[in-house]
Design a protein around this nucleic acid. Structure first.
Length: 628
DNA sequence: GCAAGGTC
């Protein structure tokens, strides 16, 4: 009887894909009791080396199996003071709806010699792997545990992963365990404290949950921050000099090197010196090739930002649609931070798959006929997933409207990455007029290249400039002073917010959209449509409650040394750094949990002590001011 | 009734 190996993936789609490759396409499918998504696939596979030919059961979980929660006696909101949640005992249990999946793993482990873990190759995947191991050991304490390391479900790569298993990375699993405990304790403690304290302040807060989370609050902070900058903005008048020349029937506007100044008298004096000089002198005529770079390989954050901007689909919807396209096998895994294509991926083969398309098939053909270029190399690599790209062609009539848009975007972006930069000829002319310098720039687009397929970028030829020669002089047709006013920044848009979250390490590519949805749901922010028609954008504006919370917390810590407001991303960033230390093996999980809890406990104590600051802010915006 | 992170 062949040895049996149990394989467990992070999600059903991966279990199926891996089973397909390992079995060569012939496997038996069995449903499990109690869950309609998880299946067991059975087949034989030769793992080579010490394992040899084995009978395999390939199955999956559906994300995390377990959740952490407080012991029963701490679950009631009145059961203890909120601060006690920093120490209250916690317990890890299999989620109720995951029990059949855990049981399936226990049962299958009973007859297996070894467990191969096929979770995603990232930090959370390592933790999910440890959850799977715990269940398997319950069924069979002596089962040997290995981990398959793979970052895409391309056939050769999967076979390689199966034949070269490694060990689970306990450090990474521990880092996630620390994160889970911290998020729970800190989130629950602050949420209970502020909800219980603030509900009584205003009528409209009576039934509300006023949640705190280490991600949702900094997200709110960004929105409020921008709102205050808009609100406190004072326009300033500026002045500048513009110079115009008519030559060869063309009007050339020269821009001032100083752009503009805030001192009118000074600008007038400068202009007068120009006028006295009468003649302007051409000091520079440069013709040089210009190029507009093709985009970088597509990451999740970029997909969400571009999606909001060009497809007019909000980031949460984008991710749902991308997930569906992935599950159906049309695009690669849509959650990735990587903007580098691994050298091992056969990009040309992927381009060829797009030949049948009516809109960009011809373009794909031209790439293969000689225009193909190796994509640019970005700076990020999560070592888990490749950039988002199409893996198979799909006819548009197989897709719904949103799927069509997202698939088209992913594909055009991919083809653009494999194209040459756009090329053009630029002309820079600089003149000296009196003591001031001015310049005019011209552009002729010579080769559009990637722009032909990547319709989201614009690069247009400017009006052609007349001929100038270095050293020549001319008398400008006009030289005037102009006046302008600085304008207020706009409210934050969703793509801008995602950019800020990304830059500050708030949330993951998969959860950023959820945090934004959460602060809308909690009524900390609302969205408003700016402009109309095709150019309209959704902007985020904090509610009175949102402003009150940020102002309240800023007041709670103001004047205190080393205390950073909860509305700022700093504390979360700190936590992230400590997780990295666990991964590196320089700190233990217990150290990090204790250290981080101490840090947040200090803020918590200040908040309790100065709770009136929070209450006052809420009263100010929700009671006194509520009618204005 | 609390969080954030997986995924359906």
């Amino acid at each position: 009887m062949a040895r049996k190996i149990l394989c467990v993936a992070e999600k059903p789609a991966i279990a199926r894909a891996v089973a397909t490759h390992l079995s060569g396409g012939s496997f038996q499918t069995h449903s499990i009791r109690g869950n309609q998504y998880v299946k067991n696939y059975e087949f034989d596979f030769n793992f080579g080396g010490p394992w040899g030919n084995c009978s395999v059961t390939m199955t999956s979980v559906i994300g995390h199996l377990t959740g952490l929660d407080f012991d029963r006696q701490y679950k009631g909101w009145m059961s203890c003071p909120p601060g006690a949640l920093f120490e209250a005992p916690v317990q890890e249990d299999v989620d109720k709806d995951k029990l059949p999946i855990a049981e399936n793993i226990q049962n299958q482990a009973r007859y297996s010699k070894a467990l191969f873990i096929w979770t995603d190759c990232d930090r959370e995947g390592e933790h999910i792997g440890s959850e799977v191991r715990n269940q398997a050991k319950k069924g069979n304490a002596r089962i040997e545990v290995k981990r398959a390391k793979f970052s895409n479900t391309e056939r050769a790569h999967v076979l390689q992963a199966a034949r070269g298993p490694v060990n689970l990375d306990e450090y990474q699993a521990n880092a996630v365990a620390a994160r889970i405990e911290l998020d729970l304790r800190i989130g629950a403690a602050f949420t209970r404290l502020q909800t219980l304290q603030l509900q009584a302040v205003a009528e409209i807060l009576k039934e509300k949950i006023i949640s705190y989370g280490s991600c949702q609050f900094p997200t709110l902070g960004f929105v409020v921050d921008r709102y205050l900058r808009v609100k406190n903005f004072k326009p300033e008048t500026f002045w500048g000099i513009k110079v115009m020349l008519q030559r060869e029937g063309k009007k050339v506007n020269f821009l001032w090197k100083r752009v503009h100044l805030f001192d009118r008298v000074a600008v007038i004096m400068m202009l007068e010196r120009c006028l006295i000089a009468k003649e302007a002198n051409v000091v520079k005529v440069v013709q040089k090739p210009k190029s507009k770079w093709r985009p970088l390989p597509l990451t999740t954050v970029d997909l969400q930002m571009m999606g909001s901007r060009f497809l007019r689909i909000d980031s949460q919807t984008i991710m749902k649609v991308a997930e569906a396209l992935y599950t159906k096998g049309y695009i690669s895994y849509p959650r990735t931070e990587t903007d580098q294509f691994d050298k091992a991926i056969d990009l040309k083969k992927l381009v060829e798959k797009q030949f049948p398309d009516n809109s960009w098939g011809q373009y794909a053909r031209e790439l293969i006929d000689g225009k193909f270029r190796t994509p640019r190399w970005g700076r990020n690599n999560d070592k888990a997933h490749p950039p988002i790209h199409p893996v198979a062609w799909v006819s548009p009539n197989q897709l719904n409207a949103n799927e069509k848009k997202v698939y088209e975007f992913v594909t055009r972006r991919f083809l653009a990455c494999c194209s040459d930069d756009a090329k053009g000829q630029g002309t820079d002319i600089e003149i000296q007029y009196g003591e001031e310098f001015f310049h005019a720039n011209g552009l002729i687009v010579l080769e559009r290249n990637y722009l032909d397929v990547y319709v989201y970028d614009k690069w247009e030829s400017s009006q052609e400039l007349p001929t100038f020669e270095r050293g020549e002089t001319f008398e400008p047709t006009e030289a005037n002073i102009f006046e302008g006013k600085t304008t207020a920044p706009n409210y934050l848009t969703e793509p801008e917010l995602i950019g800020l979250m990304d830059a500050n390490g708030i949330g993951t590519d998969a959860t950023m959209a959820e945090h934004i949805a959460k602060i809308k749901d909690r009524e900390y922010v609302v969205t408003n449509k700016r402009g109309s028609g095709r150019t309209s954008v959704e902007e985020l504006i904090p509610t009175r409650l949102g402003i009150a919370l940020v102002e309240g917390y800023d007041n709670v810590v103001s004047g205190l040394p080393n205390s950073i407001s909860l509305s700022k991303p700093f504390l979360r960033k700190e936590m992230e750094l400590r997780m990295l230390e666990i991964c590196a093996g320089t700190k233990t999980r217990q150290d990090v949990v204790q250290q981080s809890l101490d840090m947040y406990r200090e803020v918590f104590i200040h908040t309790q002590r100065r709770i009136d600051m929070l209450k006052t802010a809420c009263r100010k915006y929700l009671v006194d001011d509520a009618t204005s």
